[in-house]
């Protein structure tokens, strides 16, 4: 045979065909999404290298001078340096506190997002592949979880368990996995109906291989989209819980707790203690959501059209 592979008809189909390629193309072709993605990356880098970037270690009580409390932005410190964003009620440098708070918020958001993704994806795949009673059971629990207000469930759980980072992560996983399970099941049901799955059955491949080697890689698009959006929602949920005082303990301040710290003095003119962490949280969640929305646009099979 002399037939050659054809190039795709470029005026109709996206230029790249892998999920990652489509996601990348989608982000770089939208200026808004590109800015948001750059912001996300920058914030993650800042959080990662926080200890080296922050002017002060806010956990180090020796470095904090109580006489520096509630200084406005650009005030000089006792030691001669400048508090760029002022200090909080304990005399901590706000910028340093925010960098450390960003670390905590991101760790909680990413960790709970990833764990929820793993659990939800596995359950969604199993529900779609096996169907019947297993599917019915999993999906009824999913319906129940999605029917309850997430923040209420987390509140009740933390009220019972008490504070702590791991407990917050647990609570967030509990309220998030159902989103993943539902999205993955929907995608997997479509894949399951395709002939390549029947071919895999006919070729005697094991269920594990079919589920994780064949179906899962084809469900990556919704997983990435839901994952991105869920990380944003986990970060804001954690901030809410910490703001309400039942999230993270005071020793590991997250952005939510920082906002809460300055809340009492917000109207008395000492705005910086609440407003700057608030702005940072806003920028973080907003950027992730813009990236997520863009990914949904470019990865959604209904938009892709195949």
């Amino acid at each position: 045979m002399t037939d050659q592979p054809i190039s795709r008809r470029a005026w109709r189909l996206p230029s790249s065909d892998t999920v990652i390629g489509r996601a990348f193309n989608g982000l770089v072709t939208s200026p808004k999404a590109l800015v948001a993605a750059v912001l996300c990356i920058a914030l993650v880098l800042i959080a990662t290298f926080g200890p080296w970037l922050a002017p002060q270690n806010p956990y180090d009580l020796a470095a904090i001078d109580f006489f520096d409390a509630r200084l406005p932005p650009m005030s000089p410190s006792m030691t001669g340096s400048v508090y760029l964003l002022g200090t909080d009620g304990q005399g901590r440098d706000m910028l340093s506190a925010m960098i450390y708070g960003l670390r905590t918020s991101l760790v909680v958001g990413l960790l709970s997002g990833v764990v929820a993704l793993l659990i939800g994806t596995a359950l969604g795949l199993v529900a779609a592949y096996f169907g019947g009673r297993i599917d019915a059971l999993i999906m009824r629990v999913v319906d129940l979880m999605l029917g309850l207000p997430a923040i209420l469930v987390a509140l009740m759980l933390l009220a019972t368990l008490g504070q702590g980072m791991w407990k917050v992560v647990l609570a967030l996983v509990l309220v998030q996995w159902a989103q993943f399970a539902r999205a993955v099941r929907a995608a997997a049901l479509i894949e399951r109906g395709k002939e390549y799955i029947e071919a895999a059955v006919s070729l005697g491949l094991s269920k594990r291989r079919i589920l994780f080697g064949h179906m899962l890689p084809n469900c990556m698009a919704p997983i990435i989209v839901v994952g991105t959006l869920q990380v944003a929602s986990a970060i804001s949920a954690e901030a809410t819980l910490s703001f309400l005082g039942i999230g993270l303990p005071i020793t590991e301040p997250s952005l939510g707790l920082l906002i809460s710290n300055g809340y009492q003095t917000l109207l008395s003119g000492q705005y910086w203690i609440s407003v700057y962490p608030g702005l940072l949280l806003l920028v973080l969640v907003f950027s992730i959501n813009i990236v997520g929305d863009r990914l949904r646009e470019v990865l959604n099979p209904r938009f892709v059209g195949r």
């Binding site: 002399t2 037939d3 008809r9």
Partner: peptide, 10 residues
Amino acid sequence: IPGMAPSPVN
């Protein structure tokens, strides 16, 4: 007929 139809761009 051996082969396949040529791509419309080429």
